[in-house]
């Protein structure tokens, strides 16, 4: 990089390095990240701080908005619904993700590549497209209902969408890859000989799994749980489309307050609660698992 200035240093001066050179070089590197830093502070941190501020000042200064957390049934309902859907989504995603990772981790390297591709392809498709795809599948005249009625399993269409069930289906579908990646990473670190050793020492397949494989993959499971839960808390598009406006989760409720009801104070209050909830979750789990692993840092 010419910014560092060292590339231009002639070979002759190499014997007497200028003492200020390292600092200059560092300044150059810091300069490189300056645009990103400004972008983050001006367009990201500042609005968040403003959100925090508004929640204490609109419609009048004070803790009125936060009081609603304890007094308003509507607010409590939204929080309860959000937590319930997030917990169910996380649990189902972890179960499916763990099973999927287990199959992938034990597959041959060639098969592993195909499995991973199959897991990752959905990530490349817009969440909007996927949500509408689920609507067409699950609605009254959708493939699932028509199919079940054609087989004579049911007499009238099941209510599969525009309720919590639909939201959970859509969210789980979105979250499973995020569950698979950390779980698979921790499963891949397990020496397959450990399982053979367990069986050689007298453990059945199941005991070897329970006493050796499961504990060793637990960090990945916890990491995946945190990741999925936090993602779920702020989910907007999928619940908005598959919930049909009847089941409100936090993100959609916030949008409703701010854009439709112009109640900025209430909207920003819940947004702040959401941010704090995520930070608290992270703080708790950072003591349990290595967060670097969660966010793809070095092992």
């Amino acid at each position: 990089m010419s910014m560092s200035g060292s590339a231009a240093a002639p070979a002759l001066s190499a014997a007497t390095p200028a003492p200020s050179l390292p600092r200059f070089r560092n300044a150059g590197w810091w300069g490189l990240i300056l645009p990103a830093f400004l972008l983050m502070t001006v367009f990201y941190l500042a609005p968040i701080l403003q959100v925090l501020l508004i929640s204490f000042t609109e419609p009048r200064p004070g803790l009125d908005n936060y009081e609603r957390l304890f007094t308003s049934m509507g607010v409590q309902n939204v929080i309860e619904t959000t937590l319930r859907i997030c917990i169910i989504t996380t649990a189902v995603s972890l179960a499916l993700g763990y099973a999927l990772s287990y199959v992938v981790a034990l597959a041959s390297p060639r098969a592993q590549r195909w499995w991973l591709l199959a897991v990752l392809v959905p990530l490349w498709i817009s969440v909007l497209v996927r949500s509408f795809a689920w609507v067409t599948l699950l609605r009254r005249q959708g493939l699932v209902n028509e199919g079940l009625m054609g087989l004579g399993v049911i007499d009238e269409p099941l209510r599969l969408v525009w309720n919590e069930f639909g939201i959970v289906v859509g969210m789980v579908h979105y979250m499973v890859p995020y569950a698979v990646l950390p779980i698979l990473a921790s499963m891949r670190e397990i020496d397959p000989r450990l399982l053979a050793a367990a069986r050689g020492l007298g453990a059945s397949r199941f005991t070897a799994f329970r006493r050796v494989f499961l504990p060793l993959s637990a960090p990945g499971l916890v990491a995946a749980g945190v990741l999925v839960f936090i993602f779920s808390l702020g989910f907007y598009i999928t619940p908005a489309i598959l919930g049909g406006g009847k089941t409100l989760m936090a993100a959609e409720w916030i949008k409703l307050q701010i854009l439709d009801l112009i109640r900025w104070g209430l909207g920003t209050m819940l947004a702040t609660v959401l941010v704090v909830a995520i930070l608290v979750t992270l703080a708790i789990f950072s003591r349990v698992v290595n967060l670097k692993r969660l966010f793809g840092g070095g092992a």
């Binding site: 020496d191 000989r193 450990l194 053979a196 050793a197 367990a198 050689g200 020492l201 007298g202 453990a203 059945s204 005991t207 006493r211 050796v212 504990p215 060793l216």
Partner: peptide
């Protein structure tokens, strides 16, 4: 009894737990 190449000790168990494993199962 089997001693594996690279030993295949269970990393999440202590030495005593490793040795106790065959008895526990």
């Amino acid at each position: 009894g089997m001693v594996f190449q690279g030993y295949a000790l269970f990393p999440h168990m202590s030495v005593a737990e490793n040795v106790a494993f065959p008895l526990r199962v």
